[in-house]
Amino acid sequence: MDSRFGRFWLAMGYAFLYIPILTLVVLSFNESKLVSVWGGFSLKWYGVLAKDEAVIDALFLTLRIAFFSATAAVILGTLAAFAMVRYPRFFGRTTFSAHLNAPLVVPEVITGLSLLLFFVMIQNLLGPVEEWGPFLTLFKNTFGFPEERGAFTIWAGHASIGMAFAAVVIQSRLIEMDKSLEEAAMDLGCKPFQVFYLVTFPQIVPALLSAWLLTFTISMDDVVTTAFLSGPASTTLPVLIMGKARLGLDPTINAIATITVAIVACAVFAGSLYMFRQEKKLAAEAAAAYRDAD
């Protein structure tokens, strides 16, 4: 009884989690614009999407911001994780850890609002950038900041949120890593930086990768903070979708969703296949090792 009820509960739970996603996929192939009418199989919404330059532009902007903010977040998150794990005592450590975890609990509306006001304040304080010399002018010409908000301000916001998430992932890997590996490296003649790139780095690569993917996804996905930080010329894909969704149902969103799901599904499938093979290989090798142990 226990197990039959359990299976039922699990099945219902997974249905709840997956049916909405599946409906998006199915509806993206619906000829009809109406949700409740099946107008036949069609790829027409994908065609509409491909011709929609606003969507394409937004997509590339989103990818670009996500790439750079994930990279920055992982670098900063690695440093922060090291600070937390390797230095049990430093001035202001409690404050540091509170700061580091804050973006995980503070609602996005607040992060977005505070960053926006901060950028506006800098803009007001600096005034016309040209008066501050060639360096800031070059900065403005490259990033558009502080003259106006856009890709740069979004990047900064996403990097600071992503850093918190990256730090959590990397921290947990660092904690479970055998500290004596680093000591062994030092014992065998590695200077501190050599210890990092010869021993620690190879150990945490998987964590860095998953932290990067996570922060990339968070950036790709973010609506609220982005809406606060974006300027007129910088609409990201989620902001665009949000705008469309507020106006009601739009079949092109279904097509976007289906493409996302397909990419994620492929990545997950490839990833788990790789992990499965790797695990099998490891198991076989370990078994062989014990067989011919002398």
């Binding site: 997956y18 996603i21 969704a245 799901v261």
Partner: peptide, 8 residues
């Protein structure tokens, strides 16, 4: 589901 867009 974390990996697919929350908005979608």
């Amino acid at each position: 589901p974390f990996w697919t867009s929350f908005l979608l």
